[in-house]
Write a protein that binds this DNA or RNA. Structure first.
Length: 275
DNA sequence: ATGGCATGACAATCATGA
């Protein structure tokens, strides 16, 4: 199966890109961040026309997440959870759902703005609460993918200019240690797992020709539990999406997993009785 | 040190992002 995460920076603006991208790539699930749409404006009909169902949690202007699923293969997402039960939050940043037999947790992690800001305090609290909740989700759903816009660089390999970014937002020890704890708990950073070349990023500033100069960060991640990671065959960042007219500043990140849809259920189905 | 670009709310700038 194929799973993708993409911060679209306004689904309203990017809907044509998303529809074309879905048509060209046909992932089983597409996790979106920064939809920036209240639920009543979510473009369900256009997506269904493209063969996708969606579950979503949005708000006006800021944040907003969604999980799109391919109707003809995995069908609709179920067991949907919006937000973190341990962290009451008006900001729509988290949605989880079961797709085929994989638990998908889609997050738009807080930006944090600056290490000395209130927003940074919120970011760290959000991260701690996520870790707490993930322990419970993983106990319940052993095959789990945590994916989204993490707004954290794992280390300096994810930073185009580590000197300029040293101790800046996305690159602080406080943020990185929390990401490291997720990896320490057994989740696998599946892009890094395939030993990508240096200079592999997922976000580039709109300003100063940052994409042209590949002045980027890798902050959009897919973390897989061990068994899923062992079945993964590839993880790619689609830079072509960033080259388009009026692009999102983030590129889609996709993992391919050698896993038959509904295989667990199939294995459990009763056999024909012996003659 | 600041803003540079984009988006949305709102109607000229301002909040936010990363």
């Amino acid at each position: 199966m194929k799973l993708t995460t993409w911060n679209v920076n306004s689904l309203n603006v990017r809907l044509p890109h998303v529809l074309e991208w879905l048509d060209a790539n046909r992932p089983d699930a597409l996790c979106l961040q920064e939809t920036k749409l209240p639920d009543e404006r979510f473009p369900l009909a256009a997506l269904r026309e493209a063969g996708y169902a969606a579950v979503y949690a949005g708000q006006k202007t800021y944040n907003g997440v969604a999980i799109l699923t391919r109707l003809e293969t995995v069908g609709e997402a179920n067991q949907v959870v919006i937000g973190n039960p341990h962290f009451p939050d008006e900001q729509r940043r988290l949605i989880a759902a079961t797709v085929a037999d994989v638990r998908i947790v889609n997050g738009y992690f807080p930006n944090g703005q600056a290490p000395d800001s209130d927003k940074f305090v919120y970011k760290l609290a959000w991260l701690d609460a996520l870790a707490h909740w993930l322990d419970e989700e993983r106990a319940r759903y052993p095959a789990l993918a945590l994916m989204g816009d993490f707004n954290i660089t794992r280390d300096d390999a994810d930073v185009h200019d580590p000197v300029a970014w040293r101790d800046q937002i996305h690159c602080t020890e406080a943020e990185r240690s929390r990401l490291a704890a997720l990896l320490q708990s057994g989740l696998v950073d599946i892009f890094r797992h395939f030993d990508p070349p240096p200079g592999s990023y997922s976000w580039w500033d709109y300003r100063q020709g940052a994409f042209r100069r590949n002045a980027g960060l890798r902050i959009d991640l897919i973390l897989l539990t061990q068994t899923l990671a062992e079945q993964a065959t590839a993880c790619t960042i689609d830079r072509a999406a960033r080259k388009r007219e009026q692009p999102s500043d983030h590129a889609p990140v996709t993992v391919e997993i050698a896993r038959a849809h509904g295989s667990a259920r199939h294995d459990l189905s009763p056999r024909d009785p012996a003659p």
